[in-house]
Simulated scan of single mutants.
Amino acid sequence: MSTSNFEFTFEVAELNDTAVDAIELHYDCVESTHGRTTELTLLVPGMNATDAASEAINRILAAGVTVRRLVDDLVTRTEIAERADVTSQAVGLWARGERKRGVSFPEPYVYAGSVRLWLWGEVATYLRAAHVPIDEGVQYPGRAETLRIAGLIADLLAGHRPVTAAG
């Protein structure tokens, strides 16, 4: 089984330069702050999304930073169209099953009022299966992996350590 690169965004407690430097020794990372929320986006090698996230969480902890949650990479129909370089109408046809038959478009991950939001990891998997060219080969967690990673973080926040994908 080969190693893939997974992209994760974690909401973390406030970062300092020393912590960022320690994390950058292992991963490509981008820090961003939105109001009082700090996010850390990492590119992490691993055999699967859950194991890669587990290792990343442990490295973040080792740098003295608290992980609060995995930030879901949610996308609208318009954002899917932009990332896939197709029209929003094409995405609508995929979502309704009227194009790319034989490959099922994922169900929305969540509804926000009348807006449907999809998990990018599931959409990216669909696009690859439907032979729609996208990104540079980066993998993203799907629904099951997202829930497992959220569980790992919940256990961590409840005081259960170490964080491992195996439980």
Rank of each mutant, 00 (worst) to 15 (best):
T3F: 01
T3E: 03
S4G: 10
N5H: 09
F6W: 15
F6N: 13
E7V: 13
F8Y: 01
F8M: 07
T9W: 06
E11N: 10
E11K: 02
E11A: 12
E14K: 06
E14N: 04
L15K: 06
D17W: 07
D17N: 01
T18R: 05
A19N: 01
A19P: 03
A19Y: 12
A19F: 09
D21C: 05
D21S: 09
A22W: 11
E24A: 11
Y27H: 03
Y27Q: 08
V30C: 14
S32I: 09
R36W: 14
R36F: 15
E39H: 15
L40K: 08
T41F: 04
T41A: 04
L43C: 14
L43V: 15
L43P: 05
V44K: 03
G46H: 14
G46Y: 13
M47S: 08
M47C: 12
N48S: 10
N48V: 01
N48K: 09
D51P: 08
D51E: 09
D51Y: 13
A52R: 09
A52V: 14
A53V: 13
S54K: 10
A56S: 08
A56D: 00
I57K: 05
I57T: 01
R59H: 04
I60R: 02
A62T: 15
A63Q: 06
G64F: 01
T66Q: 07
R68Q: 12
R68K: 15
R68G: 13
R69N: 09
L70S: 12
D72W: 14
V75S: 03
V75L: 01
R77L: 04
T78N: 07
E79R: 10
I80W: 03
A84C: 07
A84P: 08
D85E: 09
D85L: 09
D85M: 02
V86P: 01
V86M: 02
T87K: 00
T87D: 01
T87C: 08
S88P: 04
A90E: 11
A90S: 14
V91F: 02
G92Y: 02
G92R: 08
W94R: 03
A95F: 00
A95E: 12
A95I: 11
R96L: 11
R99S: 13
G102A: 06
V103R: 09
F105V: 10
P106C: 03
E107D: 05
P108A: 00
P108L: 14
Y109V: 13
Y109A: 04
V110S: 14
Y111Q: 08
V115Y: 00
V115E: 00
V115F: 01
V115I: 15
R116K: 14
R116P: 07
L117D: 01
W120S: 02
G121Y: 04
E122Q: 07
A124Q: 13
A124K: 11
Y126F: 05
Y126N: 01
L127T: 03
R128F: 07
R128I: 00
A129F: 07
A130E: 00
H131E: 13
P133D: 00
E136N: 11
Q139K: 14
G142R: 15
G142A: 14
R143M: 07
A144V: 08
A144W: 08
T146K: 12
L147P: 10
R148A: 12
I149F: 08
G151L: 08
L152A: 08
L152V: 06
A154R: 04
A154H: 05
L156K: 00
L156Y: 13
H160D: 06
H160M: 10
V163A: 03
T164V: 13
A165M: 12
G167T: 04
